[in-house]
Amino acid sequence: MKIFVLDDDKQQQVYMETTIRRIFEKNSWEAFQLLEIYGKPEQLIDAMHERGSHQIFFLDIEIKKEAQKGLEVAQQIRKQDPYALIVFVTTHSEFLPLTFRYQVSAFDFIDKNLSDEDFAERIEQDLAYLYERRDIYQADETYIFENGHSEFQVPFNEIYYFETSEVPHKIILYTKTQRLEFYGQLSEVVDHDKRLIRCHRSFVVNPGKISSIDKDKKMVFFPNGSSCYVSRYKMKGLLEAFRKVGKHG
């Protein structure tokens, strides 16, 4: 679980951090992987290196006297991460209707004017939702990757393929909607989900998303027109996996 807070009020920053830590202690939850408090939007955006439903963002709406800055930040977060939870924490309850206009799929809207007890209860409810669902994402629904350098989650059925990057020790994931570069090895990619197939020293593919295979050119094609290579020695195994998911070579 990774927790991010954006608020330019130092006192509120301390209050949020104290509240979150007390909630974890009260519930005897395993420690969060990360708790970061930021006063500037660009600091928070720069700190985003992952995607996934294991992340939650508590955002103030008014930052540095810019009345709707938090909403703009939420838009940036949502562009980078369609899966994280976004919670607005603000004194500007009149901005609630605007959260729908900004189309950021906010999970909650918490008024800072609540009593300490009610405020903590709302924060706890949101954290509990995230905490209780940390292990429910089954392999057949979500691909979860984690190593010492990277962590992310994506819907498995949106994965097209992985390839080695020109940057040493980095891998590029191509899905239906995004391109994600991260530190790792192709062997780790396959180890995290055996439905993926290593078809070349530089590529790992999702057989369920292959549109066609050209045996002569030793190429694999995907619905968006992209393609990758298949080594001669990997062709037989790939064809078997391709047919097994209901395709026809």
Score class of each variant (00 low, 15 high):
226 S>V: 08
88 F>L: 07
63 I>M: 09
208 G>P: 01
127 L>T: 06
102 Y>Q: 07
108 D>G: 00
135 D>V: 10
171 I>C: 03
149 H>R: 13
44 L>S: 01
156 F>T: 00
82 P>D: 12
213 I>H: 03
192 H>K: 15
117 E>W: 12
151 E>F: 15
163 E>L: 00
230 V>N: 08
172 I>R: 07
63 I>T: 04
142 T>K: 08
152 F>P: 07
73 V>F: 05
14 V>A: 15
15 Y>L: 15
222 F>K: 04
35 L>V: 03
197 I>C: 02
94 E>A: 15
153 Q>N: 10
205 V>Y: 00
114 L>C: 13
173 L>V: 09
99 T>S: 12
117 E>Q: 12
169 H>S: 05
157 N>F: 12
194 K>M: 12
40 K>V: 10
220 V>P: 04
155 P>N: 01
3 I>G: 09
148 G>N: 04
106 A>L: 14
20 I>Q: 09
125 Q>T: 14
127 L>E: 07
202 S>V: 09
63 I>K: 09
6 L>V: 04
125 Q>V: 12
177 T>L: 13
35 L>S: 08
213 I>P: 07
228 C>I: 05
176 K>C: 11
80 Q>C: 02
83 Y>A: 08
161 Y>E: 10
67 A>S: 14
113 N>C: 14
141 E>W: 07
61 I>Y: 04
51 R>E: 08
66 E>M: 11
145 F>N: 01
147 N>G: 03
158 E>D: 15
247 K>M: 13
154 V>N: 07
19 T>R: 10
225 G>P: 05
40 K>A: 11
10 K>Q: 13
87 V>F: 03
3 I>D: 03
234 K>P: 14
96 L>G: 08
137 Y>M: 04
208 G>L: 01
108 D>L: 15
91 T>C: 14
243 R>W: 10
167 V>Q: 06
200 H>V: 01
99 T>N: 11
83 Y>S: 08
187 S>L: 09
92 H>W: 11
118 D>M: 12
40 K>N: 08
168 P>F: 05
100 F>G: 11
97 P>G: 14
216 D>W: 02
233 Y>C: 12
21 R>M: 09
236 K>G: 02
